[in-house]
Amino acid sequence: MANFDQELDASGLNCPLPILRAKKTLAGMEAGQTLRIVATDPGSVKDFEAFAKQTGNELLESGEEGGKFVFMIKKA
């Protein structure tokens, strides 16, 4: 498993909460640090792509693990 600086468990949360929580967590992190996000909302897959594209934070990974969606975002 890749390294990360912080982790956010957004399991059980629905749109738009995973994105909003991620944004809040990223705000407290340093540029270049990575955030691992775990979510159960299937809509979050496309939403995190769109979030990364629009905010400039890089989506390093997007995948599934044990029935949950896992994202790795590097803060710009």
Binding site: C15, I19, Q54
Partner: peptide, 11 residues
């Protein structure tokens, strides 16, 4: 509220 909070999160 959903669109406003999300838009704010997107900058």
């Amino acid at each position: 509220f959903i669109l406003a909070s999300t838009a704010a999160a997107l900058g």
